[in-house]
């Protein structure tokens, strides 16, 4: 067993994990944060995307031990209390999901994309989520959601859609 430290959504966790545990397993099973989903377990669908030191990674491919000392953001860390992040609100308002299984990962990829580049072109939007499969929506309403989120975030001084 290895003792590792993870900062998840601003909270410090210290967990004992087997060396062969993935970050996804630790988040979902040890820490019981099940918002992050497992689709393929092989890096191919993006459902397990989380931010690690500000970058999107497939948490199914990251060993928990590799994440030792890292800053992790999961879908649970986006809303502030009852206030949804503008990306979350935009996905609701624009029909950016159906079954919702790809949604946590999709929103994490969107977050990084918009943090990196507040004004992506349509082409950049498509590329930004090219690691996230969605089978339900045909993506059109996801593109709408991201475009609208970009506007909402630009309109707010704190970049979060608030005042």
């Amino acid at each position: 067993m290895k003792s590792i430290k993870l900062e998840i959504n601003g909270v410090q966790h210290e967990v004992e994990v087997a060396p062969w545990r993935t970050l996804l397993e630790v988040i979902r099973e040890e820490l019981q944060m099940t918002g992050t989903k497992e689709g393929c377990g092989l890096g191919e669908c993006g459902a397990c995307s989380v931010l690690m030191d500000g970058k999107t990674v497939n948490s199914c491919l990251v060993l928990a031990a590799e994440a030792n000392g890292k800053r992790i953001t999961t879908i649970e860390g986006l809303a502030q209390a009852e206030r949804l992040h503008p990306i979350q609100q935009s996905f609701i308002d624009n029909g950016g999901f159906q079954c919702g299984f790809c949604t946590p990962g999709m929103i994490m990829s969107t977050k990084v994309m918009l943090d990196d580049n507040p004004n992506p072109t349509d082409d950049e939007i498509k590329k930004g989520i090219s690691g996230n499969l969605c089978r339900c929506t045909g993506y059109a309403k996801i593109f709408d959601s991201i475009r609208a989120a970009k506007v909402a975030m630009a309109a707010s001084s704190d970049g979060r859609g608030g005042a």
């Binding site: 497992e38 999961t74 949804l84 996905f91 609701i92 308002d93 999901f97 919702g100």
Partner: peptide, 18 residues
């Protein structure tokens, strides 16, 4: 908008494996 929107965008919607 969908009635299950908030649950789905916040990761609170519980799927079978959850």
């Amino acid at each position: 908008p969908r009635v299950d929107g908030v649950e789905k965008v916040t990761g609170k919607a519980g799927y079978a494996a959850d």
